[in-house]
């Protein structure tokens, strides 16, 4: 039972990341009809927003170290600490949550520029060409990041207050051995909040309603005198922000490097296809489902029965689903079937 709960939680936080990326992919696909292979790169860019924020906050000045008296020793102290003392230290500690503030405008801007500068020329081109051009863009973006930040993973820690583990075993009455990192719990809650935010934006605002109407029948909405194109562009920006935030918050779990986007992209595409192309609830559900399945498959008891299953479970599920339910779990009729 303990192991079961742990694996479930393990799967859910990874599933949260998959769901957020897949949600953005589906949004872009549902509105603009574009298959965006650069979406994983947006996730990666988000993660590097956190890295940038950390670097900015820890810009340091060299001061003489008074503790060493034998020779002149210098140590680096961040400006923030020099200026604000302990407050500054606390701010640096919270670098990752703070970088959300940086990531939202930056990712929105990147999304809008990407849509206006490249994607809009590809609405009418074939899906293969969309895949190819965004694949090229993903390579370019990740190479730029590699030049700017180097090829090695950059550790970016969670705030000290939530660095430890939560004693969820005691809360649930399962015994003290069941502990779970705080940050992963936060990530899970965060991803649920973002998903809820996106859905309520689409469901409960007039803006979102028009967007949904445009997804159903773009032409009619256009005839009603609404500039649906501009709204879709904004939706692309929102999708970029969602992917970016997923990346920002993921940095304490996985130190970001320049090719993390590609790894997540492949999995997220599988998630989208399993959930059903064009279905937002499908993407979210499949994200969590595949995350949990992957986590269960890596239990030793399972691996003893089926060696290697943890390596292939996601793809195996995708193959089975595609063959048994061709439209995915919640796919709509007529999407991507030409």
């Amino acid at each position: 039972m303990d192991a079961f709960v742990l694996q479930l939680l393990n799967g859910l936080d990874k599933g949260g990341a998959y769901a957020l990326i897949a949600l953005g992919l589906t949004l872009v696909f549902g509105t603009l009809g574009v298959v965006n292979f650069a979406h994983g790169a947006l996730f990666m860019l988000g993660a590097f927003c956190a890295v940038t924020m950390q670097k900015l906050l820890t810009l340091s000045v060299k001061v003489k170290d008074p503790g060493v008296t034998f020779f002149d020793a210098y140590k680096e102290i961040p400006y923030l600490e020099v200026w604000f003392g302990d407050t500054g230290k606390a701010v640096i500690d919270y670098a990752v949550p703070l970088s959300i503030l940086l990531a939202i405008p930056v990712m929105l801007l990147i999304g809008l520029v990407m849509e206006r500068g490249l994607i809009r020329f590809f609405y009418k081109r074939s899906h293969a060409e969309q895949i190819l051009v965004t694949f090229g863009l993903a390579i370019v973006l990740q190479e730029i990041v590699k030049t700017a930040f180097g090829a090695n993973p950059i550790p970016t820690g969670a705030p000290d207050a939530v660095a430890g583990s939560a004693a969820i075993g005691e809360w649930l009455g399962l015994g003290a051995a069941v502990v779970y990192p705080w940050w992963r719990l936060i990530y899970l809650a965060f991803s649920l909040a973002i998903i809820a935010g996106v859905f309520s934006f689409l469901q409960f605002t007039t803006y979102g309603m028009v967007v949904r109407a445009g997804m159903q029948d773009r032409e009619t909405v256009g005839l009603l005198g609404i500039n649906i194109q501009r709204r879709f562009t904004v939706v692309f920006g929102v999708a970029a922000v969602v992917a970016g935030l997923a990346g920002v918050m993921y940095t304490p779990i996985l130190p970001p490097d320049y090719h993390m986007g590609m790894e997540f992209l492949v999995l997220s595409f599988v998630v989208v296809v399993v959930g059903g192309m064009g279905s937002l609830p499908g993407a979210v559900f499949a994200g969590f489902l595949l995350g949990v399945l992957q986590s269960f498959a890596s239990m030793t008891q399972v691996k003893d029965i089926l060696p290697g299953i943890d390596q292939i479970i996601i793809y195996l599920v995708a193959v089975v689903i595609l063959l048994v339910r061709p439209r995915g779990l919640m796919g709509r009729r007529g999407v991507m079937e030409s």
Partner: peptide, 12 residues
């Protein structure tokens, strides 16, 4: 399957 589903299947 065809289209993007085929691509994903071969990728998988």
């Amino acid at each position: 399957r065809s289209g993007i589903y085929f691509s994903i299947l071969t990728l998988a």
